[in-house]
């Protein structure tokens, strides 16, 4: 595979901790970008601030590492000014759901032709493990020392409600499915949103009883259910446990999109 050709090899090894899932998402993204046949010269990676947002710095294309939460707004400018560029936004849960929530829902509403990949590690990793809008109820972080008391954000439902053309959720374990989902996202006209649950052993796992990297992967593996199965179970009148992670393609449609290459 030639995903390796897309890497800035002189910058590796990267800054992420051992076992961090962000690197896996970069692999899957680059594999999908390579598969779809985009050229390095007309692909732009945009990101905000946070662990996830360091990713474009390791990709050998034009890359824009912007201010906290504003990645989608910057990407909107790039895409509308030159629709011939393929724009991928790599962002994190704090970046996208907290400070950048407004830009996110409006990009979904505009259905602008971007692919947004959210590396959701359910914590603010770079600043040392503070609670984020996606930290599940009861989970520990440095700012939720007695367990988070706020309900967590379901980003895929948000994107769906706001009007994105493609919405999917996978985890850092399901690499093949994730690559396929990113491929579908890249080929979708309009906003494609792919949420990836990734493990954060240093700041999330350590405080929440996942002793090793593989423990958190195991948790994601055993607690995830495909959307089709979840729908079927619900139809049959079964209650899904609250911590179930619903994976798969949440929505795929072709609403009018903006900034599509002519």
């Amino acid at each position: 595979m030639s995903g390796d050709d897309w890497l800035r090899k002189d910058r590796l090894p990267h800054i992420w901790c051992a076992g961090c899932g962000n690197g896996t998402v970069v692999n899957c993204t680059l594999a999908a970008v390579d598969e779809i046949g985009w050229q390095r010269a007309n692909t732009v990676f945009v990101s905000g601030i946070g662990c996830s947002s360091r990713a474009p710095g390791y990709v050998l294309t034009d890359s824009l590492h912007t201010t906290h939460g504003r990645a989608i707004a910057f990407a909107t400018g790039v895409k509308l000014a030159d629709p011939s560029l393929n724009v991928v936004v790599i962002t994190g849960d704090g970046d996208l759901a907290a400070i950048g929530g407004n830009h996110f829902i409006h990009a979904c509403r505009r259905n602008i032709d971007l692919t947004v990949i959210c590396m959701n590690n359910q914590i603010y990793g770079m600043t040392g493990g503070q609670g984020s809008p996606t930290t599940p109820m009861g989970k520990l972080s440095t700012t939720t020392p007695f367990g988070s008391v706020e309900p967590a954000f379901d980003l895929t439902e948000l994107a769906k409600a706001a009007g994105a053309n493609y919405v999917a959720r996978w985890t850092g374990f399901h690499v093949k499915e994730l690559t396929k989902a990113i491929f579908s996202g890249l080929s979708t006209k309009g906003l494609a949103f792919i949420e990836v649950l990734v493990q954060c052993p240093t700041n999330y796992g350590r405080r929440n009883k996942y002793r090793s990297v593989t423990d958190q992967i195991d948790y994601m593996k055993t607690h995830s259910v495909l959307k089709q199965k979840a729908d079927r179970l619900r139809e049959e009148g079964n209650e899904l446990p609250e911590d179930t992670i619903i994976l798969g393609e949440i929505v795929k449609r072709s609403l009018p999109a903006m900034g599509v290459r002519k």
Binding site: M1, D4, L7, L12, P13, H14, W16, A18, G19, C20, G21, N22, G23, T24, V26, N27, C28, A31, G172, F173, V175, K176, T179
Partner: peptide, 14 residues
């Protein structure tokens, strides 16, 4: 690439 799971999941591109 046939399986390639190890390469895909390796977060460090190693």
């Amino acid at each position: 690439t046939l399986c390639g799971m190890c390469q895909m999941i390796c977060p460090d591109q190693a």
